[in-house]
C-alpha cells in the first residue's frame, strides 16, 4: 500500500501555503490555446441556449403580445401577473395549466417505466453473444434513427379508426374487439401518446444501458455463478448496483425529455390536442404561438423550469451517487 508523504516546501515559498505547479506546468496552464479551442462552443452555447433562456425569463414578466412584438422593449412590465394567471387553480388558464402539469407528470412516469424496462431487457439480452446479435442491435435502433415527424405521422395513420393498421389487426384479423375503437380521440389519445413516445425513446435507454453493462467485469458474474447466485440474483445484486451511476443520469435525462415532449402530441393531434393528451409543452406553444401571448407562455415555461429544477436537484442529492463513487 502506498503512503502519501508531504513534500517539504520549496525554497522561497511561505510555509503553510499550497504548492503551486512547476514553472513549466504554470506556463502550460496560461496557454490560451485551450480557451481558443472551446471558445466557438461556448459562444454558440451562449447564443443558442443561454441568451434566449435569459430573454425567455425576461419575457415572462412582460405583457408581450402582437401589439408590441416588433419592439420587445416597449412591452409593458406586468410583474408576476403572468405567473399568477398560470398558477391560479380557479382561473381557466391556471386550471388548465395545472391540470396539464399533473397529466404530464403521470405521462412521464408511465413512459419512463416502459422505456426503462424495455431498455434494460434488450440490453441484458444483447449483452451476451449469440447469432443475430448484430442484426438485433441495428433493428432496435430503427425508432431512434427515424426522423421523429415521419415516424409519428406513420403512427397517426396506423391508429386511424377506419383505415388504420391497428384496428385492422385487432378487429378484422384477430377479432379481439367487436367494434373499431377511436385511438386518436378521447381518453385513448393519452395512451397513443404514451405508446409513440415510448417507442421513439426506448432505443436511447437501450444504448446507454448496454454501454453501462459492458463496463461490468465478467469475472464478477463468474464468481457469483460459482457461489450459486441465480440469474435474477446476479441482476439484482450485481448488474443494478454496478450500473447505478449511468442509470441514475439516464433516468434523469430521459424524464426531462419526456416531460418536455412536444413533437409527438403536436404531430399526432395538431396545435389543439384532445384534453387527455394536452401536455405542458403543447399548451405553452398554444398560448405563445396561437394566442400570441408570449408573456404567459414565457411564464409557464419559467414555472416549468423551476419545478423541474427543484425535482432534479432533489433527485440528484437523494438518488445519484456522489461524484467520488463514479470515478
Amino acid at each position: 500500500m502506498s503512503q502519501l508523504v508531504e513534500k517539504p516546501p520549496a525554497a522561497g515559498s511561505e510555509p503553510g501555503t499550497p504548492q503551486g505547479p512547476a514553472p513549466a506546468a504554470r506556463r502550460k496552464r496560461k496557454s490560451p490555446f485551450a480557451y481558443i479551442l472551446i471558445a466557438p462552443a461556448v459562444i454558440m452555447e451562449l447564443l443558442i441556449h443561454i441568451v434566449p433562456m435569459i430573454l425567455g425569463v425576461w419575457i415572462a414578466f412582460l405583457g408581450l403580445t402582437q401589439l408590441n412584438i416588433r419592439n420587445w422593449l416597449r412591452a409593458p412590465f406586468v410583474g408576476f401577473d403572468n405567473f399568477v394567471a398560470g398558477l391560479d387553480p380557479n382561473g381557466p388558464i391556471g386550471g388548465e395549466f395545472l391540470a396539464s402539469f399533473g397529466r404530464t407528470l403521470v405521462f412521464t412516469v408511465i413512459v419512463l417505466a416502459i422505456v426503462w424496462v424495455l431498455g434494460i431487457m434488450a440490453a441484458v439480452l444483447l449483452h451476451s453473444s449469440f447469432r443475430g446479435n448484430g442484426f438485433l442491435r441495428t433493428f432496435f435502433l430503427i425508432p431512434y434513427a427515424l426522423p421523429s415527424y415521419v415516424a409519428t405521422i406513420a403512427w397517426a395513420f396506423m391508429f386511424s379508426q377506419r383505415d388504420g393498421a391497428i384496428n385492422k389487426i385487432l378487429v378484422d384479423d384477430l377479432g379481439l374487439l367487436d367494434e373499431r375503437p377511436f385511438w386518436l380521440l378521447g381518453g385513448n389519445a393519452f395512451w397513443v401518446t404514451v405508446i409513440v413516445t415510448a417507442w421513439q425513446m426506448w432505443p436511447f435507454a437501450f444504448l446507454m444501458l448496454l454501454a453501462a453493462l459492458q463496463n461490468i467485469p465478467k469475472d464478477v458474474y463468474e464468481a457469483a455463478a460459482i457461489d450459486g447466485a441465480s440469474l435474477w440474483k446476479q441482476f439484482m445484486l450485481i448488474t443494478l448496483p454496478m450500473i447505478r451511476p449511468a442509470n441514475g443520469v439516464l433516468l434523469l435525462v430521459m424524464s426531462l425529455w419526456i416531460f418536455n415532449q412536444f413533437n409527438v402530441p403536436f404531430v399526432l393531434f395538431g396545435a389543439a390536442p384532445p384534453e387527455s393528451a394536452r401536455l405542458v409543452s403543447p399548451l405553452i406553444y398554444q398560448h405563445s404561438f396561437s394566442n400570441w401571448n408570449f408573456g404567459l407562455g414565457g411564464a409557464m415555461s419559467v414555472l416549468l423550469l423551476i419545478l423541474l429544477f427543484i425535482a432534479s436537484v432533489v433527485y440528484v442529492r437523494m438518488v445519484l451517487p456522489k461524484g467520488k463513487d463514479i470515478d
Binding site: 441556449h49 434566449p52 426531462l256 416549468l304 423541474l308 436537484v313 440528484v316
Partner: peptide, 25 residues
C-alpha cells in the same frame, strides 16, 4: 476522471427546461 454528475444534471435541467423559451428564432 470524475464525472461531474451534479453539474451535468443541473445543466441538463437548464437546457431542457428552457428549450421552449428559446422558441423565437
Amino acid at each position: 476522471m470524475k464525472i461531474p454528475v451534479k453539474a451535468l444534471s443541473t445543466f441538463a435541467v437548464l437546457g431542457l427546461g428552457m428549450s421552449s423559451l428559446a422558441a423565437c428564432g
